[in-house]
Each structure stands twice: as C-alpha cells, then as structure tokens.
Amino acid sequence: MIGRIVRFFGDAEQAKRRRWLLAATLLAVFVADFFVAREHVVFFWDAISGWAALFGFLSCVAIIFISKALGRQGRLMRREDYYD
C-alpha cells in the first residue's frame, strides 16, 4: 500500500495522472475558498477569496528567484572548496 502510493508519485508512466490530480486539487482548493465563512477578518486580504492561492504562488516564485539572484549575483554561492 505504502509502496503503491510512493510509486504513483515516482513512476514516469503515472505522470499524466499526476498532472490531472494536481489540476483537480488546485481547482478544488481555489473554489473551496469562495465558499467558507470568514469570521476573523483582521486584515483586508482576509476578506478576499483566492488571496491565499495568489499569495502562495507569488511567494514561491519570489523565494526561488530572489534567493537564486542572491546566490549568483549576490555571490553567496561559492565553489565547494572555498574554505579549503
């Protein structure tokens, strides 16, 4: 059972099904956000349906590219023998 679940996420022949599963999950999560009760609205974005999806995606992209820029252009990344 565990082996089967893990293989589903690894084997190349399942790639198509994985993509469908991802698309369905994303859609479900996005749509569900429009149907929940919003009692604790502290900041303006708490009231916006779909905000979390947008913010999550943008955060992810920002983290990847800003970090890589710091690593490359910011010279944080060095050869492995830098300290030797």
Binding site: T25, A32, D33, A53, F55
Partner: peptide
Amino acid sequence: TGAHITGSLGILMFTLLGF
C-alpha cells in the same frame, strides 16, 4: 475553521504549482 483550512491549502498547493 473553514477559512483557515482553505487558506492554508491555498498557500501550500499553489506553492506546489510554482514548484
């Protein structure tokens, strides 16, 4: 709470999309 669950899943699943 409903909003917390969908909010968290929204952040996480769309991070997965970015990945």
